[in-house]
Write a protein that binds this DNA or RNA. Sequence first.
DNA 1: CAGATATGTGAACATTGATAACATGGAGCG
DNA 2: CGCTCCATGTTATCAATGTTCACATATCTG
Lengths: 196, 196
Amino acid sequence: MSTSINAPYHHGNLRRALLEAALIILEREGEAGLGLRDLARAVGVSAAAPYRHFDGRAALLEALAVTGFQRFTAAMEAIPLANPPDLMAAMGKTYVLFALDNANLFRLMFSPQLKRTAAPACAWPPTRRSKPCAISAVATPRPAASPRSRPWARVHGLAVLLLDGQIAIRAGEDTEALIAEIVRTSLRLAPAILPV
Amino acid sequence: MSTSINAPYHHGNLRRALLEAALIILEREGEAGLGLRDLARAVGVSAAAPYRHFDGRAALLEALAVTGFQRFTAAMEAIPLANPPDLMAAMGKTYVLFALDNANLFRLMFSPQLKRTAAPACAWPPTRRSKPCAISAVATPRPAASPRSRPWARVHGLAVLLLDGQIAIRAGEDTEALIAEIVRTSLRLAPAILPV
DNA sequence: CAGATATGTGAACATTGATAACATGGAGCG
DNA sequence: CGCTCCATGTTATCAATGTTCACATATCTG
């Protein structure tokens, strides 16, 4: 367990601690409620300390977004392989659940206020890189024109609709099953998935 | 032209002036770049003046959102009546174009940071109230379950996808025609529109 | 062990949202 | 007309925030 929690440095691995605390605050208070001083206070460190690890608030937010994309990718990679239709459904479900479980982070990941200097770290759209049949790009060319890109666009739209409350989930409902069904319905309307 | 620009009050109709200036700043600088002091300065008034008209920054943002919904509704009402399929397509196109033309305002309208005390003023989903055959609610019950609500959910998702850059529009392209086509394609997949 | 470098601290500064006390000008009434 | 009252706007002020700078301390390298 001596992987990363230990203190290789002076006060501990601050950068990681900051990011973790920031993720919690972000999810609880929203992006506007994430202040650098609060953050420093939460980690038990001086107000100027974060500046040793991030160029400023904007850079901190960008690092958070990168973290988000990493976790997002990890969640995708964790999906067991399957034949394309099932895989697609599973990825869609994972996509939407990730958005719901990390609402503010997800919003941040696609926020226009990001300068995206670390663009390559923000890997989108999702892929299963181990699978040559994986679904590929959507954002780069003009995705609307590419039939095999539409499913992701649709799933993303679905996620945002849920986040925006345009598709409400009644309390006490089986969220996961409901999501799965919505995704399935949504994808059924999509054109067939083309192997790359 | 003496409709509303004139000065019925002391310094002029400040509330309206503030809202108009705020809309411009919001579109140019984004929500984060909209400061009360900048705003006051832009209108040529003291920094404390806006507080006579809005309870604070949050209230100002909420008022902006309400304004957005009003303009949105107005845009919808301006659509000439037609038979349901054509009407639907026209409303979808208007919906998406509104989102693109007022990107930051649109984002604000659906932002989770709004307390929505003025909920009734935030009229969504869009309706053509003069038409009994109009399309009705989506958000209130559980829209995913209601077949006739899905088109709006889909159009909203489309708008957000465009805003988030997941569906890119190449520069110098006929935006309007492209949007119309995307909306048409998207709606064609939707279940038939049911008259209310 | 010594110096260089990375990391954290404390004190500052400008700016912001917000509030309170004061000023002003028009509306309404005698 | 003249007076008061109230909505509106101003100035002064405060606490909090992002940011920077000079300084301190721990870690690493030679």
